[in-house]
C-alpha cells in the first residue's frame, strides 16, 4: 500500500437535509428545528403568492375578479388553513426560541451527575405548554373555517 493511497480524502458522510427530516429517536426540539424551517419556507412561499395575487389588482378589475374566483375552491381553503397553522407554529415556537436562545428560561449549569439531564429536557413543560396552546388555537380556527 503506497502513501498516496493512504492519504486519500476521507469518505464524505454528512447526513445533509435528510438529517433534518429524520435522524433517529431524538427529542421533540430537534424536530421542531425542522418544523420551524419548513413553516418559515411555507410562509415565504405564501408571501410571494399573496403579493403576486394582490398585484393583479393593478391590471384591472376583471383580472382581479378572475384571480379571486380561482381561489374559491376547497384546495385553496385547505391551503389557507395550512398557512395559518404554519404561521401559528412558527410564531409560538419562535417566541420560545428567542427566549431560550438568549439563555432565558433554561436555568443555570448543573454538575453532571448520572443519570444526566440537560436544560431543554428540564424545561420540556415550556414546549408542551406551547404545543397545547397551539393545538387549542388551531382547533378553534378549524371550527371557524368549517362552520
Amino acid at each position: 500500500m503506497n502513501v498516496a493511497e493512504v492519504k486519500k480524502k476521507p469518505l464524505k458522510n454528512y447526513l445533509g437535509i435528510w438529517g433534518w427530516v429524520w435522524a433517529g429517536r431524538y427529542n421533540v426540539e430537534r424536530y421542531l428545528y425542522t418544523l420551524q424551517r419548513v413553516t418559515g419556507l411555507g410562509i415565504i412561499l405564501y408571501g410571494i403568492l399573496h403579493l403576486t395575487a394582490n398585484g393583479m389588482r393593478i391590471s384591472g378589475e376583471g383580472l382581479w375578479e378572475d384571480t379571486m374566483s380561482l381561489f374559491e375552491n376547497p384546495v385553496f381553503a385547505v391551503g389557507e388553513y395550512l398557512v395559518i397553522a404554519a404561521f401559528l407554529i412558527h410564531a409560538l415556537n419562535g417566541l420560545r426560541l428567542i427566549l431560550q436562545q438568549l439563555g432565558y428560561t433554561l436555568g443555570a449549569p448543573k454538575p453532571p451527575i448520572y443519570p444526566y439531564s440537560h436544560a431543554l429536557q428540564r424545561r420540556r413543560p415550556i414546549v408542551l405548554a406551547m404545543g397545547a396552546l397551539g393545538a387549542i388555537l388551531l382547533l378553534l380556527i378549524l371550527i371557524d373555517f368549517v362552520v
Binding site: Y26, N27, Q100, Q101, H118, L120
Partner: peptide, 24 residues
C-alpha cells in the same frame, strides 16, 4: 438554532446546547 440534539447525545452530560445559548 437550538435543536438540542447535542445535549441529548452527549455521553458526559456536558449540555453543549445550554452553553451555546449562554454564549449567545
Amino acid at each position: 438554532h437550538l435543536a438540542g440534539a447535542c445535549s441529548e447525545a452527549c455521553p458526559k452530560g456536558v449540555d453543549p446546547a445550554l452553553a451555546i445559548q449562554l454564549l449567545k
